[in-house]
Every structure is written in structure tokens, then in C-alpha cells.
Design a protein around this nucleic acid. Sequence first.
DNA 1: CGTGCACTTGAAGTACATCAACTAGGGTGG
DNA 2: CCACCCTAGTTGATGTACTTCAAGTGCACG
Lengths: 244, 244
Amino acid sequence: MSTRSALPPGNRTACALGIPCRACSCELRLVPGGSKRGRINVAPGARVIVQGRSTRSIYTLYEGWAARYRTLPDGTHQILDILLPGDLIGLPAALQGGAGHSVRTLTAATFCVLDANRLTALLRRKPRLAFNMVRARVREQERADGWLTVLGRMGAGERIGYLLLELRDRLDERGLAKGRSWSLPLMRAELADTLGLSKVHVQRALRALRDKGLANLEGHRVIIPNSRNLARFSGYSRVHSTSK
Amino acid sequence: MSTRSALPPGNRTACALGIPCRACSCELRLVPGGSKRGRINVAPGARVIVQGRSTRSIYTLYEGWAARYRTLPDGTHQILDILLPGDLIGLPAALQGGAGHSVRTLTAATFCVLDANRLTALLRRKPRLAFNMVRARVREQERADGWLTVLGRMGAGERIGYLLLELRDRLDERGLAKGRSWSLPLMRAELADTLGLSKVHVQRALRALRDKGLANLEGHRVIIPNSRNLARFSGYSRVHSTSK
DNA sequence: CGTGCACTTGAAGTACATCAACTAGGGTGG
DNA sequence: CCACCCTAGTTGATGTACTTCAAGTGCACG
């Protein structure tokens, strides 16, 4: 657990609820009537949210990586989003009594647990909090729009480049980017399920990217020699984090 | 304009803001400090929101169809969503000072215009309104998740079936579905841009669907002989509208 | 020292895109 | 009225990006 980096204290931009944080990204104790329940540690591969089931808790990811995904009738998966420290988890499962997706950890992880009822009550009473959450949801939709475009219109190499650059920027916003080489705890199959490709073809596209000198993924270590080149190639452009 | 159907008065489920409606789906005059500005009529093909530009207004579509889409550097398009009467338009352009997409009308259309500043002020003061909007955004994300899965994992025929069924259900929620035959004001090129396919291949997949007796799209008239069959084929399942 | 799993590479099939030709309405000017 | 064009739709032929099946490698763990 110590090798993975948790969200640095005091990071507001990454906080899913837009609330000033001290000890942790979801420090709801700072809010009157706060609803924090505590933290839980979870092994890699554990399912935190199960497709179709409702929950009485909402989570924020504090440390480690997770994936939000949908399982199809034929048993295949589509990963809808890679979740990083600071991300909010379980809003639909709590608000709508069941989500159309599951969430499972990709690494060992720590979650902050919030009481769903108390959070929704809080949302009703605190317009500022709800407003921040609307803004956060709008921003998430913009990100989803990007992925719709990627899956609808781009080839395998572009998809991989887009994913790598977006992950790097999201890590960077959270103060978790180390430089031009960083660790990506995703297996080939999980990359494939994210990108809408087969495992085999992900492999070939990775090799092509390496041959072109655009990106290098050996083992689980990412090296992007020139991110501007890769951005141009893959059509990625950073979306500014809504300041404040 | 008279042939297109507007949102029936009093329809709450389809109201983008979750507010009881009387004369119109976005009747913000019912809310204290309401921010309605009036309506505008727009010709088919007009751009209401332009990618990258901010707006001082937010809109709801009152009558007609529109498309939310992203333009790529090479000039191609990806349609991110088909907008129907009752849908909210321009939240990112107003809240974030610029959206990553454009919106253009597919038919002649009428929009209700809201003042963005006054709406955001309202959101800050009225937690109930903001809470409703969070719920609406969460539901929209679930819908976007479905499309991510469709584009990532499904073939051409399934994509078309999914689109037709989802549109029918969304029209139905709004009281605009007429029966088993209805009008779809989308050209082949727009279908292609929605589905992440080429115009030509959309054509072939349509023919295959007709040959299988699953769906019939002649001109701009849709006939689905047995929607359960089509739903099974295309992996579509209706998401219940959040009651209340 | 096998046994299993992630990864890698090769060969063959399929679903899609692209290019190109043709058809059918719908408007316009003569 | 017809000759004209313009655009949306349709169909055929060919190319390509991706999938699937299959075999083999390297490493971790008993």
C-alpha cells in the first residue's frame, strides 16, 4: 500500500465534492452535519459496486486505482472509466437505487465511506455543495463526450494515446504525476476493455506506437518521450480543470 | 412547425430541471426568481451552441429535434446525443465558459431561453433545484455509459437497433411516441455520425435489419415489428425514468 | 520442476471503410 | 412542359483494420 500514492492532503481541485480537504480528499467532517463513516481497505480485484444493486453508501477513492465497467450478456466487459484517487463512486447506485455498472479495484485501494442518506440530505440543505456537484457532473460529461468520440471515430493507436495522455493529466491534477515515466496498473485485457479493442490488437497497436517513438509501454511502465507529438497524433487536448 | 409535436404541457418526467410545468416544459416562472427569457424559433441546421464558445443563455428544447456533436480536426463529426423536446442545452457552455461540443437543429425547432447567470444564482439558492439537477445529470451519465458500451463493443446492426429503441423510449417518456411507426428526422450521414460508422455501412446494416424483420427504416419512417426481438438482438434494455 | 498466467507473435477470417457508379426525387430556369 | 442540376439514397468492388484462433515465451509461485 505504501508504494501507491494517495491524494495529497489539501488538494481541492481533485475533491469530488468541491469541499476543502484537510486529512483526506473527502473530509466531510469539515461540513456541518458531515456524513463520513470511515475508511476501508480493499484488495485488488474486489467489487465495490455491483451492477443493478443499490447501496446505502457512497465512496470516494482515496488511494489506488479502480475501474467502472459494464458487463454484457455475453460476459464481455466495457470499462466506462478508470477511477483515480479523489474520484466519487456510487452516486447512481445510491441516488437511483441501482447503477448500470459495477466498480472493481485494479490495485489494493482505500476508500472513504459516506452515508448515502446523509449525503443526499446534505445536498438538499446545502445548495453550494449541490451546485459544486452539478459542475463536477457537467465536467465528467465532457470527459465522457471525449471518449464517445474516441470510440466512435478513432483507430487503435489514437485510442491508446488518448488514454495515456488523459490519465497523465488526471494524475497530474491530483499531484500524482511523477514525470515522463509513470506506472500504469492495467493489464492488456483491461486496456482492451477500456478501448473497445481486442487484447491482441492492443498489443499490436502498442508495438506500433513504440516503433513510431510516440509512446512506450513496457510491463506496466509508461514512457511518453514527447507528449505534444502524442497529443497531436491522438487528437487529445487537455481540458482545463474548473478552477475553484 | 405544426406537424412536429411539442412537449405536452404538465409533463414532469421529461422536464430537464425537474420542475412542475404548465405552459411549457421549462416554465421557470413557476419558480420564485425564475429566469425565463422567452422562446426562439430556429430553422433546421442552425447552430445554437458553438464548440469552444461560452454563452450567456441556457436553453431547453421545446419543439423539434437537435444534435449535440463534436467536430474533429479532420472535419468529421461525432454526434454525442440526439436532443428531444424537454432536453436541457448549454449547461457546460454557460457553467464552464465553453463546451467541447456544438449543438445544431435537425428540424425546425423552438427553444426556451433562460438567463444563465440567473439560473446559476437560482441553483445556489435553491438546493432542491440543484439536487434535481444532480439526479438528472447522473441519469444522463448512465445513458452515456450505454452509448460507450455500444460503440465499444457492438456491431453495426446492434448499434442501429439500440438507437431506435432508445429514441422510441425517450419519445415515449415525453408523450411523443405515436405507436409502432414513427418519424425519424435523421439523414443517413447523421445516423453514421451518431453510430460511429460510415454512411455506406449504415445503409447495408439497415438493409440487413429489414431482411431479418427486426426493423424497417424507409425514407424517414421507422417501423419496429416486434420491439422485444429488436431489444434482445441489440442488447438494449429500457432504463426506468426516475419517478418523481 | 512443473503449472499457470500475462504477454507476445503468426496466420486466417470478418466487419468495416473507401472509392465509384448509378438512381430517384425536388427545385430552378428556360 | 422539359433540361438541368443538386442532394440523399442505394448498390458494387476493393482495400484495410480489426478479431479470432492458435502456438509459443517468459516469469512467478507452488
